[in-house]
């Protein structure tokens, strides 16, 4: 267990060495947050509420999801695939380590950095310039924290599996690109899933992608209480269990017929 904590700590410190990148990233997130906010402000012109979202809800949703971009890192994470391409994965595999746990630890350390230095500032920008609403009780914050953590683990599993495909083909960029195209819509990142046409919405809320952004977002907006809240968290937990299992199986068959690059 200790080794995974250490891996998390070191990964956190690695990301901390690139402060300038963080600043540039924040500026980009802020710019697109502004853009998305403007679209919603225009949309809500003369319309007090849409699909259960007030303008304030929509703005909160915009800044929350902007902040979640880096902690979830759904857009193009290829760290493992890169070690397969370069062959440096050989050193990791020649160690008495649980490979999945090792990378999960590293990713949680990275996510901790991105929560502190990307999510928090983005929320603050939303709070200061758009007066977005925050969860009103300690319990609501706790529920959101748990939901956020589950979403991060889930996103890690998805990224892990895409990267591990690199054992079979050294070019995972294409697959990553395709999956992310879906991710933008199906997670509820571009538009809340509630805005989808009812038939489509009924399907997408059942998919695991909804558990990555849509559910934490609903919990942040306190759209679900009591039993409903527990159901949402339970749904996330269910997908985490399924995804961890799938990632583990994929890794097992990958290491069985391993091709390490380089002679």
């Amino acid at each position: 267990m200790r080794v995974y904590l250490e891996a998390a700590r070191m990964s956190y410190r690695c990301y901390r060495t690139y402060g300038a990148a963080t600043l540039a990233g924040l500026a980009t997130n802020g710019f697109f947050g502004l853009l998305r906010s403007s679209v919603f402000i225009a949309f809500y012109e003369g319309r007090p509420i849409a699909e259960g979202y007030t303008l304030d809800d929509a703005l909160t949703y915009v800044w929350l999801t902007q902040g979640m971009i880096m902690p979830l890192f759904l857009w193009g994470w290829l760290e493992i695939a890169d070690t397969i391409r370069s062959g440096s994965i050989a050193s990791d595999l020649a160690k008495p380590l649980d490979y999945f746990g090792f990378w999960l630890g590293r990713d949680l350390g990275r996510a901790a950095y991105h929560i502190l230095y990307r999510w928090l500032p983005t929320i603050l920008i939303g709070l200061i310039f758009f007066g977005i609403g925050l969860p009103g009780s300690a319990l609501a914050w706790l529920a959101f924290a748990l939901s956020f953590l589950l979403a991060i683990v889930l996103s890690f599993c998805l990224r892990f599996m895409i990267n591990v495909v690199g054992f079979w083909t050294t070019d995972v960029r294409g697959i990553m690109g395709m999956v992310l195209l879906f991710v933008n819509f199906l997670t509820g990142f571009l538009v809340p899933l509630e805005f989808f046409p009812p038939a489509l919405r009924a399907i997408v809320t059942e998919l695991p992608f909804a558990a990555m952004i849509s559910i934490p977002n609903k919990i942040f907006l306190e759209q679900a209480q009591g039993r409903d809240l527990l159901l949402l968290l339970g749904r996330q937990l269910f997908w985490v269990v399924v995804f961890v299992g799938a990632a583990w199986l994929l890794l097992r068959s990958a290491t069985r017929k391993l091709v390490v690059q380089g002679g």
Binding site: V165, W168, T169, D171, V172, R173, G174, I175, G177, M178
Partner: peptide, 8 residues
């Protein structure tokens, strides 16, 4: 990318 997917 489709070629890569096909190979997978």
């Amino acid at each position: 990318p489709l070629g890569a997917l096909r190979r997978v």
